[in-house]
Amino acid sequence: MEGVGAADALLRSRGRSAELGAWVVGVAFGREGRVCAFGLGDGTVRLAAPGQPAEEWRTVAAHPEGACLALCADAKDGALSGGDDGRLVRVAPDGAAEELARYGRKWVEHVAAHESGVRAAAVGKAVHLLDGAGRPLKSLAHPSSVGGVAFDARGKRVAASHYNGCSLWFVAAREDKPRVLEWKGSHGAIAISPDGAHVVTAMQENALHGWRLADGQHMRMSGYPSKTRSLCFTARGRWLATSGAESVVLWPFFGGGPMGKAPTELAGGDGVPCTAVACHPQQEVVAAGFADGLVVIAEVASGRVVPVAAPGRGPVSALAWNAAGTALAFGTETGFAGLVDLSKR
């Protein structure tokens, strides 16, 4: 058990943790920097104050009759939560919950927001876009249920994955006609590279599929022992970090890659699947969570791994950095959550 204690050093000395009692579905720091929000399977959103470990975490009844299914940072501040009660709810930094939209009995399964003020909620086959004031902008229809949604870095385009590919829409288009990127199968988690040149999805068949938008070139990234649930590009887009293997698998998106290139693997060797990844907002550093609850930070260039939280608290299901890259938050399927201050002292 000595190893476990050492792995918890950062959490103990520079963090705060709690047993929240329900599946941690998502975690996000408000863009204003004052709040860290955990979305839970019991329908609540818990708010922690980064940098103020003494302050009590607050509980917001975001989905009183249901479960939170997705959570992200809202456009300006606070967090955006989608629930199985059909509601899209904004949680302000002060803890006030505001219903932005209600979609009947359908689930709000995926949410995304961009600092320019636009928000997206995936409900069944539709992606609803809302403006900064919460007014509906448009509803984008897809041929089948949406498995993931993401904005590009500038907030100009939104991508939605579904069966047999994904659709790329211009947020401000007068006439909504998507560019459909086709590939047979069921597509889930989705990411757009920071330079807007590539779209990548995670598939049902333990593989990723990517498209180079300039020429439609397909990219197949396979070899995962389990499904990839989490994927993100590093800050400058050189690497795509992914979960689903017994290490953090990073695909090179430079020097002609990822076609014909082998991925880099970090923090492997324990035979435990990686379940969540989050890329540092500025540096080539990746945080990763594993199926046994271990949370680490790894530097891509050196391969150096620093443990943040010890194993033993359930599969890591949520992981996020704050915008400054000075704090990391995580949560697990069994309801353990942590917030660690990583700023220079």
């Binding site: 190893g3 594993f290 194993p311």
Partner: peptide, 10 residues
């Protein structure tokens, strides 16, 4: 890492 790692979900 330590031998206490175990991914089994009980």
């Amino acid at each position: 890492m330590s031998e206490t790692r175990n991914a089994a979900d009980p």
